[in-house]
Simulated scan of single mutants.
Amino acid sequence: MAPRVQFYHNTPDPLALACELVGRAYGSGRKVVVRMPDEASAQVLDRMLWTHERLTFIPHVLQDSPLAGETPIVIASAADTSAAVGKPLWPHTDMLFNLAPDLPPAYPDFKLVVEIVSQREADKLPARARWTQYRERGLTLKAFDAELRVAL
């Protein structure tokens, strides 16, 4: 079954929105992989998830952790896409949050792909290319304005 794809455009703070949406997903029992552009941004998101909501615990690890398969939220870097022989690329295939500028490898394995796009012009062009690639593959797409909190 092909994944559904949701784009959150016009995001003033992509990491804050990722924390919010990941928290909601975890609260509803979902398992999530968050794909960041690089290792540095993965580390920043890791720290943010520890402090996002003071009274909320969101169990998460980086992809290279030995606990990745057992932890509901896994943070990965786009550079870390090499899977060991016989091992799947991602520890979960429920939800994939993509904050990297390219199409995620193995995205068809997921039930839902969430693309988070900032307000920066430099992020909009690659997002449009991903939208087109998903549409050309016949996937169901939905768009939301993240700042106005409305469906487009």
Rank of each mutant, 00 (worst) to 15 (best):
T140D: 14
V44S: 09
H92P: 03
R130K: 08
V113E: 10
S41D: 10
P126Q: 04
D94M: 12
L125W: 08
C19E: 14
S41A: 04
K142R: 01
T93L: 06
L45M: 08
P104S: 01
I73D: 02
D38K: 02
M36F: 03
S41W: 11
Y26L: 03
Y8G: 00
Q6H: 08
L139V: 13
A78N: 15
A83I: 10
Q6A: 09
K87T: 05
H92F: 13
V114H: 03
E20R: 05
V5R: 00
V74Q: 03
L55Y: 12
S118N: 12
K111V: 00
A42N: 13
Q63V: 04
V85I: 11
L152R: 00
L148P: 06
T56A: 15
A68S: 07
L139A: 14
M95C: 11
A127K: 08
R30L: 04
A100Y: 07
L67D: 13
G23N: 13
G29C: 08
P12A: 04
D38C: 12
V33N: 01
P37F: 13
L141T: 00
F7A: 01
D38S: 06
G29E: 11
E136Y: 14
S41C: 10
L99K: 02
A16P: 11
A25L: 14
V85T: 15
T51H: 13
A127P: 10
H52G: 06
A106P: 01
E39L: 06
C19T: 12
A100T: 07
A78H: 04
T11R: 13
E70G: 08
K87D: 06
D145G: 00
A84Q: 13
R30P: 03
V5C: 01
V33C: 06
R149F: 05
D46Y: 07
D94V: 03
L45F: 11
L99M: 07
W131V: 00
L125K: 15
L21D: 08
Y107L: 02
F7V: 00
Q133I: 09
H52P: 10
G29D: 07
Q63K: 05
Q6F: 08
R4P: 05
G23M: 14
G29W: 15
T11M: 14
Q119V: 04
K111F: 10
P91T: 02
S77H: 13
P12R: 11
C19G: 13
E39G: 04
L55V: 04
E70F: 10
A76F: 07
A129P: 02
S82Y: 06
V61R: 03
G138Q: 03
R54P: 03
R4M: 09
S118D: 15
Q6R: 09
D46H: 12
W131Y: 11
S77F: 15
A76E: 09
G86N: 06
A79W: 11
L148F: 09
A16V: 06
C19F: 09
R35P: 00
E115R: 02
F7H: 00
R35E: 03
N10M: 01
E53R: 07
L112C: 01
P91A: 02
R24A: 06
R24T: 05
M95T: 09
P59A: 10
A2W: 10
H52Q: 10
A127S: 13
G27L: 05
R30G: 05
L112V: 03
